[in-house]
C-alpha cells in the first residue's frame, strides 16, 4: 500500500507495480461570474491499483464529485494528468476519448436524475452496448436481462420505465448500466447517499459482490467516513479541493494523522457507550470556507484546533507527506494530532 502512494511524492522513484489509475496534480477551476474562480479541485495526486477500492470522503462542496467527473472526463481538467491504464485521458478528444470510456464507468449520486425518464430500463442499460456496436436485438435483450439478473432485479423489468421503481431499484439499474461494458474502473459518486438506510447496505453488498465477480476497481465517493469504512482498502480525505489524508482504512479508524480526519470521525457516534463517553471529540468551528476564496497557507487553518495562526499554518501550504508507512497527511503538525487533539 505504501509503495504506490509513495510514487505521488515529487522526486520519488516510479514503482514497478503499474497503477490502474494515476491522478497527477489535477486541478479543476470553474469560472464564476465575470472574474470569480471556484477552486473545486487543487493539485490532487493519487494512484489506484487494479482491484482496489479507494474511498474518497469529504464534506459537501469539498470537490469530490468534481474530481470524479474530471477522472471520467465529463469535465476537462484545468491542469494535471489523468493516466488511466497507461493513457493520459486529458490529451484525448472525440472518438479516441469515447473509446476509452468503455473501461471507465460511473455510478451517479441521484438515482432519480441519472436515468432518462423517457427511456425504458432495457434501453437505458443497453445504451452503452449500442454505443459500442451491439445492435442485434436478440443479443441486446439477452445481455440486458443478464445484467438485470446480476444486479438483483427481475430480468423481465426491461420494458418498464424508471419512475416505476424505488430508489434502491433505480440505483441497481444505474449499476447495471455501469457494468454493461465490463469496465475496469467504476467511479461511484455517493451511490447510496440518496437511499434509505435500510437499502444502503444492500447496494454496498451488491457492489462488493460485483467487485469480486468482475474484478472491478472502485473509486468510492462518500461524505461520511462510516460509509466507506468496510468497503474501502484505502481512504482519502478531501477538504476544500485538496486531499489532506490518505491511509489504509483499517489504520484510519484507529488513529488519524490530520485534525480534519479526526473531526470527521468524531462526528460518527460509537455504538459502545463506554468508549463514546471517554472519546475526545473534535468540534470544527465555523462553516467550510467558500472555494471562491480559499484561505491562505493550509486551507484548513481557519477551522483547525491546532493551527498556528498567525504563523506557518496561515502562511505555508503543507505538502502531502508520508508520515508513517503507507499513511499520508497534509499537515505541519500531524505529530500533535495523536497527542493534543
Amino acid at each position: 500500500m505504501a509503495v504506490d502512494a509513495a510514487a505521488v511524492r515529487p522526486g520519488a522513484t516510479p514503482q514497478p507495480a503499474e497503477p490502474l489509475l494515476r491522478v497527477a496534480h489535477v486541478t479543476k477551476h470553474f469560472r464564476a461570474g465575470v472574474s470569480g474562480v471556484v477552486h473545486a479541485v487543487e493539485d490532487v495526486s493519487f494512484d489506484i491499483k487494479p482491484g482496489e477500492t479507494v474511498g474518497l470522503v469529504g464534506e459537501s462542496g469539498s470537490g469530490k464529485s468534481t474530481l470524479g467527473r474530471v477522472i471520467t472526463q465529463l469535465v476537462p481538467a484545468t491542469s494535471g494528468q489523468v493516466i488511466f491504464d497507461g493513457v493520459d485521458l486529458t490529451t484525448l478528444r472525440g472518438e479516441r476519448l469515447r473509446q476509452q470510456r468503455r473501461h471507465l464507468q460511473m455510478i451517479f449520486q441521484d438515482p432519480f436524475a441519472s436515468l432518462d425518464p423517457r427511456m425504458t430500463v432495457g434501453d437505458i442499460i443497453a445504451e452503452p452496448l449500442v454505443n459500442f456496436g451491439l445492435h442485434d436485438h436478440k443479443e441486446k435483450d439477452r445481455k440486458v436481462q443478464e445484467l438485470l439478473r446480476v444486479v438483483g432485479l427481475n430480468p423481465y423489468f426491461n420494458n418498464r420505465y424508471p419512475h416505476e421503481f424505488s430508489g434502491g431499484q433505480r440505483q441497481r439499474i444505474g449499476v447495471a448500466r455501469a457494468l454493461a461494458l465490463n469496465p475496469k474502473l467504476i467511479v461511484c459518486d455517493e451511490p447510496i447517499s440518496a437511499l434509505d438506510v435500510s437499502i444502503q447496505a444492500q447496494i454496498i453488498n451488491l457492489l462488493e459482490d460485483l467487485q469480486r465477480e468482475f474484478n472491478l476497481t472502485y473509486l468510492f465517493i462518500a461524505h461520511d467516513l462510516s460509509v466507506v469504512r468496510h468497503i474501502s482498502d484505502r481512504v482519502m480525505v478531501m477538504y476544500l479541493g485538496k486531499i489532506v489524508e490518505i491511509s489504509p482504512s483499517e489504520d484510519l479508524y484507529e488513529s488519524q494523522e490530520h485534525p480534519y480526519t479526526k473531526a470527521l470521525l468524531s462526528a460518527i457516534p460509537v455504538p459502545d457507550p463506554k468508549i463514546e463517553s471517554q472519546r475526545r471529540l473534535v468540534e470544527l468551528s465555523g462553516e467550510i470556507p467558500s472555494p471562491l476564496f480559499p484561505p491562505s497557507g493550509c486551507n484548513f487553518h481557519t477551522r483547525c484546533p491546532i493551527a498556528r495562526v498567525p504563523g506557518i499554518c496561515a502562511d505555508e501550504d503543507p505538502q502531502l507527506q508520508e508520515k508513517s508507512p503507507g499513511r499520508f497527511a497534509k499537515c505541519h503538525f500531524s505529530d500533535e494530532v495523536r497527542t493534543k487533539v
Partner: peptide, 23 residues
C-alpha cells in the same frame, strides 16, 4: 444528470440530441 450519464457511457453527441434531449 442523465445526459451526463449518457456521455459517460460513450454516447455520441447526435444520439444524445435525438434520444435524450428531444424526447
Amino acid at each position: 444528470e442523465f445526459v451526463e450519464a449518457a456521455r459517460a457511457s460513450g454516447t455520441r453527441q447526435g444520439r444524445i440530441l435525438f434520444t435524450h434531449i428531444f424526447p
